[in-house]
Nucleic acid binder design. Sequence first.
RNA 1: CGGGGUGUGGCGCAGUUUGGUAGCGCGCUUGAAUGGGGUUCAAGAGGUCGGAGGUUCGAAUCCUCUCACCCCGACCA
Length: 564
Amino acid sequence: MRWSRTLIPTLKEDPADAEVVSHKLMVRAGLMRKLASGAYTYMPLGFRALNKALQIVREEMDNAGAIEILMPAVHPAELWEKTGRLAELGDTMMHIYDRQNRHFVLGPTHEEIVTDLVSREVKSYKQLPLNLYQIQTKFRDEIRPRFGVLRTREFIMKDAYSFDVDAEGLEKSYQAMYDAYCKIMERCGLKYIVVEAESGAMGGDVSAEFMVPCSAGEDLLATCTQCDYAANMERTQPAPLPEAQAEEKPLTEKATPGARTIEQVCEFLKAKPKKLVKTIIYKAGDETIAALVRGDHEVNEAKLARLLGCEIETADAEAIEKATGAPVGFAGPVGLGIKIIADQGVLSVRNFVTGANKADTHYLNVNLGRDFKPARIADIRFAVEGDNCHKCGAALHIQRGIEIGHVFKLGTKYSKKLGADYLDENGQTHPAIMGCYGIGINRIIAAAIEMSHDDKGIIWPAGIAPYQVEVIPLNLDMPEIIELADKVYAELDDAGLEVLMDDRDERPGVKFNDADLIGLPVRVVVGKKAMAQGGVEMKLRGEPGPQLISPENVIEEVKKRLES
RNA sequence: CGGGGUGUGGCGCAGUUUGGUAGCGCGCUUGAAUGGGGUUCAAGAGGUCGGAGGUUCGAAUCCUCUCACCCCGACCA
């Protein structure tokens, strides 16, 4: 492709509305433009990169035995009612109504649709296992789209759904997808970490996320510095903290006027947050309960909900006052008449500070066991930097990451509700055992750029670069240069390489800077300097210094470099 | 949805405090010079100052409402 014939509008300055590098560079390098918050047009270069990633995903899915289909983006709302997810995910779905006011949603994911299909078409164990996948645009009414293409309202996803006769089959299907995902990440040039994850609204209890570690990521993940433990922070289990051994001091009431938050109390008492224990009141089903964590920790509501076996939400001011008899900010476990769940970390402090269930008052020297007895002591907090691995005891490292893919073992949640049953050899009916496997194509591009760029621009991993080679003719006033550049371009093209030639009548500096910006892996410069020595220059993006090569060897040399 | 911020030519911004009819850089067009890391000179094109209403002789500027976008939070496969 010739630059002059396509559309690559590069920008010298960062767009004002971009925060993260990938967003800035995708706009500056002319990959995409924003239409509205969370909705982007992919221009030629961006679309090519997207297609590269997509093709890799498709090939690996096919290799893993998954079968491609295409489902609609428009779904009747009824189908979502059947599984209860219309209520559960309703606000994250885009709702549309047809002219007869029938209710439809734009698909945020396709478990319902594919399961409905399979329930109709698959009747026998002989048809299983089956793994159906599609590559399609998903719609989610995100509360806050952000970070360019990392969180959008419309995005391309590859989603696969496996159906098996038993747990053993599911394990195989799951493993095949897991392995395929590893290959995809590698082929896309992404460094990645696989972490244990929270299944959330998908259901099921085993899931793993494929994360690309980088500062722009929205997720926090913990990895063990010694063993192979890695988990999303939502799921990370810290090693239990050692129990405190200090001598118990007498319980004391202390006036703390106006000090409600941990910061305020610490300031007032000149104490460290870890010497405090905070009491958070939750509505758990019909019950109101109190969760206790150390002042420097945070309650992990997913863990708490799982422990209690029901959905929870933080209580409102009214409920808190009713439960504690005190205004918000002074709740404490001593004398509290509701069920108390204490985090294990609370055991690591003695003589701590808590609210006194009385306005403007805290207790000093509170001790678990002596002053109150929790119904349960469990892990209900988020891990923090400084925590240790619960498997091997070594330090945990916490970092940010971009979630590229997520694989789930779903079990029978959907197949039961939607009647995806099969008959076994004995004519017995069973629900199919399902797994689902998603990967965000757009995020592959953004993550690759986050991971691989410098102050000049993008440095594409070869696997997903929009073109493999950029040919830059300089000194366009010399016909022999144009002739040689055309020849090199044609030969590379004929050799099956993807070539972009910057044929614009621009100054060298402009072309070099744009070449660095768009970041294609190999750059071939045809100019009078090299020509005087009978050659052309070749350089890898991200590596210094071009080297002179003979025009006859261009194809061979380019190929060699692309493979390295 | 709560808090904060920003909307001025294609892009990035100044001007708003103190009202007087719009400016800078980049980009774009034409011409000339230049020609290996965003070159220079000259001449141009291009703006309902996000939108609506109001105050005023006069509004980018003041007031009211509204829309969009960004950030933090809540929320979220």
